[in-house]
Design a protein around this nucleic acid. Sequence first.
DNA 1: TATTAGCAATCAAGTCTACCGAGTGCCAAG
DNA 2: CTTGGCACTCGGTAGACTTGATTGCTAATA
Lengths: 337, 337
Amino acid sequence: MNAGVDDRRSTILRAIIEAYIDAAEPVGSAYLASLPGMGVSPATIRNEMSALEGEGYLHQPHTSAGRVPTEKGYRRYVDELMTSADPGPDRAGQVQGFFAKAHQEIEELLSSTTHLLTRMTDLAAVVTGPSAHRARIVSVQLVALSSRTVVVVVVDANGSVEKRTIVWPGEVDSGQLAEIGNAMTAHFREREVRDVDSPPRFEDPELDKLGAYAFVAVREAVREADRDGVFIEGASRIAASFGAVETVRDVISILERHYLVVTLMRSLLSRGQGVAIGSEHGVSSLRECAVVVAPYSVDGVEVGTIGLIGPTRMNYASAIGVANLVSENLSRRLSEG
Amino acid sequence: MNAGVDDRRSTILRAIIEAYIDAAEPVGSAYLASLPGMGVSPATIRNEMSALEGEGYLHQPHTSAGRVPTEKGYRRYVDELMTSADPGPDRAGQVQGFFAKAHQEIEELLSSTTHLLTRMTDLAAVVTGPSAHRARIVSVQLVALSSRTVVVVVVDANGSVEKRTIVWPGEVDSGQLAEIGNAMTAHFREREVRDVDSPPRFEDPELDKLGAYAFVAVREAVREADRDGVFIEGASRIAASFGAVETVRDVISILERHYLVVTLMRSLLSRGQGVAIGSEHGVSSLRECAVVVAPYSVDGVEVGTIGLIGPTRMNYASAIGVANLVSENLSRRLSEG
DNA sequence: TATTAGCAATCAAGTCTACCGAGTGCCAAG
DNA sequence: CTTGGCACTCGGTAGACTTGATTGCTAATA
């Protein structure tokens, strides 16, 4: 409980974790003693290491090896020991440059954001699209594809477009379609997607029936709006991070199940966790991975998430720094105008 | 040149390849002689194997090992030796059942088709969406997102929806937007996407200017139409197929570059090749892989491709059979109505 | 009391050797 | 042309031994 001892011990833990992140090899006392700041002998460090192991922060693969951080060790590192996650001006510039030049559609923007993330961190990157539930509907239109099929197109205020193709109950009449579309637009305009609960009503009973029919398509279209917008990139970096092909398979197999990744990220954010290490997140196939998440917002409302996934010995400072940096820039970019 | 010898030799080659596909281990003469059909001694088989090696169909990893097929060996197997790629009634039923139950949007349909493919073959699967170049445009609409931004929505006869968000040159006037949208729809209706070359003209010079401005967005929207529709699944199966993490990384890294995969598949199809083995396709990162492709068509016109990617020692008969089967069913499904 | 030097103990990994066994190539006999 | 027999090759495994990294402990020291 002596502050001095605690301090030195923490310094040693931090040094071990950083060395391990760097080299992926167990860290020994001799190396630590040789570090500039460390004014003590290997023997002293060994005592501290032994204590740290007793406290559960370190683990010794075998007697004649150095120490390796445990999950608890990484956790303490992330919570207390890590030095500022400031990514530095060069990286900040890189991100700003990216967002300054990016003027594509939102889907392309998010997709290339995953690319940016994976390139900057060498981790797998995830960006989930703005949750559509809070978006306001701007337009509903019915377009005839053939004499029997109609596509219902819904545009929301984010600029997202959802659609649903349906078989029309009867011969398509373009006048009717236009009328129903206009009524839908008037009915739903400025309402949030999650409030799509009942169709507009029409005086004409035939129109009313068709309107109710089309409404089902609108509801389905917006209900699935969230499914589309998940962008994951960098699975190949995972392959490079792990030696065991088994692990690679497990992790990539999770990354392929987008909804699972989204669920994981959302649940982490809702618990207020920015970093989940190893078994903390409960997905057993990712037990050798850590996940870093950051929300991004549009006009002050958190609507989506940014995530990074990599081995537990990832560079947390860099990952967290980049995630936050990108999150800020993306939020600003999406909020402007 | 004696038919009898050639026949036996071919039988042996086929047996070797099938055994190797099955067990992934070099095949020896004793095992081959023990096979039911093979009425000859190991010594005889050894002679044939030696000849086959001389002809370039087999390779011997080292003196005391059995033989392994070369690319040339697989090629001959696929071209001549392989027994019918008929996937059997159970699998045919599985695929038919899938397409009978599937009634989602085309994107979801294609995406779940990759899922079906990867599940049935245990290979990575690719489905490219119907090429938009030949699709007819059905509707163009301009929707105001705010007083300064407009989203241009283009619907084609496939039911695909493309959009482009633009900053409007001036205050948005919903009457103008509607008028321009209607004129665009009239102008482009029934024209193919690749024929989008000039905007409709308006009497009113202001409208004409705005129309020309919006036209750029239409052109960009349809130009990128093809980019969206690529669905790839099963990268994790690749991880399971190769022992070396290096190879896994290389292959998955290619799979992540969708446009590269699409280009590869298209160029194979345009050369009339249904199967590319190892270095045949020229993508060096995929030199340990084979690619199986099959086109699918809508109303008799080939519009998209189905692909399977796996190790060169994949089960070609099964892969080709499934690819063709799915291609037929998908074509039928997309052509009806 | 905290630190340190010294030293014995531990153990993975590398090296060396021997050997086994799978598989071949070749030869001579059928 | 086919086959049995046999010598030969060579990867892989197992065991013995060495090396080197690293620890824990103890006793001396500040």
